[in-house]
Amino acid sequence: MADDKDVLRDVWFGRIPTCFTLNQDEVTEREAEPYYLLLPRVSYLTLVTDKVKKHFLKLMKTEDVEEMWFEYEGTPLKWHYPIGVLFDLHASNTVLPWTITVHFKNFPDLDLLHCPSNSVIEAHFMSSIKEADALKHKSQVINDMQKKDHKQLWMGLQNDKFDQFWAINRKLMEYSTEEGGFRYIPFRIYQTMSDRPFIQKQFRPVSPEGNAHTLSDLLKEMYPAAIPNEGEQKRYQVVIHGIEPLLETPLQWLSEHLSHPDNFLHICIIPVPSD
């Protein structure tokens, strides 16, 4: 496990170069320059865009400003998904920097959750961690933690402190050796081909016969189309943190190393680019 700490670091420090531009319909006193940021993959849009907001608000009248939201090529971006998931799902295989449009009007109530303050992000983040631990350990680990430990997880994410976060998070990654893994793997499979936002079910890391389940086993059950039949051309890419892990990778290892800080393994299934 200790040897794999580099993987945890690589995942934590993953960045996406992003260019924020103001929606053309917004009224400004002079033309708005775009704003560039390196976005942490494991964080949330509304948590890391204070500077973007300040940058554009300088040019606008207060009465023209409502809740800020983001859009990429016509799709409102759900702030409650980790940034890396939004990028992999909507903008994989495109040219960098990722160009995001910033809006201050016409908040799409039917598509996006409101995010009036960081405490809403914190609540969402902690509720994901709790849910993941319900799956992994019947909530025993998270419930045994103290309130300050919960706070440390959140502060670790908010302030981009890897060591602070992992000092607590490693407890959430423990399991007994005889069980060979978590009770269930907290995962979500995303795709953009249907209205259903994601698939999330119960899936064990080890088969009843005692074999380690792999990414391939999970997909066979949850999203069989993602695995090409023999002799067929590959139709989908299975992407986690911007890479395509081998389908033979054990799920338990993926869950421990490639999960987001919210403790879920977010898997994106995207069509293979046609060019």
Binding site: H80, D111, L113, D195, P197, Q200
Partner: peptide
């Protein structure tokens, strides 16, 4: 987010 509809 509604887990089946994707709406708030």
């Amino acid at each position: 987010e509604h887990p089946l509809l994707g709406q708030p």
